[in-house]
Design a protein around this nucleic acid. Structure first.
Lengths: 215, 215
DNA sequence: TGTACATCAGTGAACGCGCGTTCACTGATGTAC
DNA sequence: TGTACATCAGTGAACGCGCGTTCACTGATGTAC
């Protein structure tokens, strides 16, 4: 979202000198790192170009193809890594809270704050239609890279209903909460010029349905 | 989202024959109509090409530039029209309900159903970052084309709190409801492969915070 | 210890493509006399 | 009523650009003898 000279991102370890024999795989990590960085700024997969990635990594474009068959594979790798981090952030937030509702509240805050801390990544992960199994060229039957993070949310909601319901009944509530949290993050990102109410208050309201179902 | 031969959209009135003198402005309407149709299918402004629009309108690309200075102006015209229809749909749904909460419920359902009936349009209106004032090249000080629809929602929420609060207090609740409804629509569009709970149930849960504040 | 050779990270130049947009034009239509 | 002309909707061809990707290659590095 903030345009900046991609050359400024150049990974120091990759500049000027060629890697030694047998260490070519290092470039793979560098490429993922700079692509992650570029996507954080643009929030748009289409705005990511192999040329920019190469320049930021300090190599020429053909070098990238030693490690990724095409751009889609590179994007898939970045998105997969972002979702893993996202899921870890949700679960870490839940840790240390015994009360199920407190756990869910902590996860909800973590969801929104993770999204707002890296809006570009959030958009790439959630708002691109082509982030679905088809668009990313995932093998058939492969689950969506964000499936684990959604399961974490469903489990937390199920915990709140533990003595009163099953996970089947938790699904609509969890999906509704997810929609609310997603809406908060997505709208704040796309409409930053609006006067936004306090985020914590919005999250609190988003939990209203679950709170009343759990008590 | 569903690729299809754009030629199939060709407006009959524009095909094969040139318009008579003085009726050139008719093409403007045709262009908006076919662009609207193409955007409904793709849901992506970047996927809209002037060449496709021209082909669907039954003319060559330069003809479009007689009526729109550039692609951005065409997209702006389409989005403006879509938002006007969207606002009308919300207000029409509210009509005929005296009870403020019933009005708000009706509007909420209209919001989601309008979005799901034309997912491509919804994405173009709400999910494109460049739909904001900057990206659309709107004159400075011009409000977002969707501002009126949001105001309608805020007013309906204010009505629910009539004797208990002011519109200042309504803002966080209205924003939260908007985020929920947007999240429901956006996620259903981008993750159609998920097993989705009943939409009306989700909307009902989204209204939980307002319902408990209004009673 | 020296030398020929295989390996492999990375390059320079180019490919074909589709895009928004511009240019100079054509030819039917209406109007002035 | 006929004719010269201005108007204007629309065209055909091309522009410059940036993109993903491919190709044949280079030259430093490690290894085998």
């Amino acid at each position: 979202m903030i345009p900046q000279d991609p050359a400024k991102l150049q990974a120091p370890s990759a500049s000027s000198r060629r890697r030694k024999r047998g260490t070519g795989h290092e470039l793979r990590g560098v490429v993922i790192r700079v692509a992650t960085d570029l996507l954080a700024r643009s929030g748009d997969v289409d705005a990511l170009t192999m040329r920019d990635v190469a320049a930021a990594a300090g190599v020429t474009p053909p070098s990238i193809y030693r490690h990724f068959p095409d751009k889609q594979a590179l994007v898939r790798a970045v998105i997969g890594e972002r979702f893993r981090d996202f899921t870890v952030a949700l679960n870490q937030a839940a840790e240390g809270h015994e009360n199920p509702l407190a756990r869910l509240e902590a996860m909800s805050h973590a969801y929104v704050h993770a999204g707002l801390r890296q809006p570009g990544h959030y958009r790439v992960m959630f708002s691109a239609v082509n982030a679905g199994p088809d668009g990313l060229g995932l093998a058939k039957g492969t689950e969506h890279p964000g499936a684990a993070s959604f399961r974490a949310l469903v489990d937390a909601v199920t915990g709140c209903l533990a003595e009163r319901g099953t996970s089947t009944q938790a699904m609509p509530l969890a999906t509704g909460l997810w929609a609310s949290l997603h809406g908060i993050v997505d709208l704040r990102i796309t409409k930053p010029e609006m006067g936004w109410p306090n985020t914590d208050l919005l999250i609190d309201n988003a939990l209203a349905a679950i709170r009343s179902a759990a008590t």
